[in-house]
């Protein structure tokens, strides 16, 4: 994997290389966090600690940045990313009921992942398909004009 790092853990080595590439660049933190999330899928404490040490930025500051941007996650992400649009059009068309139904069916909250690592629920802003409001995307799939009763059936498609 890496020429310098010999810790034997591929992902840790990969992140180490990313940190080395960015080390002396101003504003390195956010690009490094993006790369780290790509490598690990999420940003647990061990990953943030590695970045803190590598970039010499306090863990408190890094955690502040990670929690500020909804793009970053400290929880493992599921195989299927359910994005419920809460933009204005979807919202007035009852997106909140759809979101509640997903939460109820999967027994998790927004930002969390089911224990089998299958689903994560995210609340997102306008996805640009207002004509189909209310809209939900699951990975690359788009579901429009939903009512709460549709949710169960949609999830069943992914349960197999």
């Amino acid at each position: 994997m890496s020429k310098n790092c010999q810790c034997g853990e591929d992902k840790v080595c990969q992140l180490d290389n990313v940190i080395k590439e960015h080390k002396n660049i101003a504003g390195a933190l956010i690009p490094v966090l993006h790369e780290a999330q790509k490598i690990f899928g999420y940003l647990p404490m061990s990953v943030q600690k590695q970045i803190s040490k590598g970039l010499n930025i306090s863990l408190a500051e890094i955690y502040g940045v990670v929690t500020f941007y909804s793009e970053f996650s400290t929880e493992p992400k599921g195989e299927y990313q359910i994005n419920v649009c809460l933009g204005t059009a979807c919202y007035v068309k009852g997106a909140n009921d759809i979101l509640e139904q997903f939460k109820k069916q999967l027994k998790i909250d927004v930002g969390q992942t089911t224990s089998d690592n299958k689903f994560s629920i995210n609340a997102c802003r306008c996805v640009g398909a207002c004509g189909l409001a209310p809209v939900v995307t699951i990975n690359e799939e788009v579901y429009g004009k939903l009512v709460a009763d549709d949710v169960k059936g949609i999830l069943e498609k992914y349960q197999v």
């Binding site: 306090s58 408190a60 500051e61 955690y63 502040g64 929690t67 500020f68």
Partner: peptide, 9 residues
Amino acid sequence: VSVIDTTER
């Protein structure tokens, strides 16, 4: 010491 910062938004 840097053990606190602004979190969330």
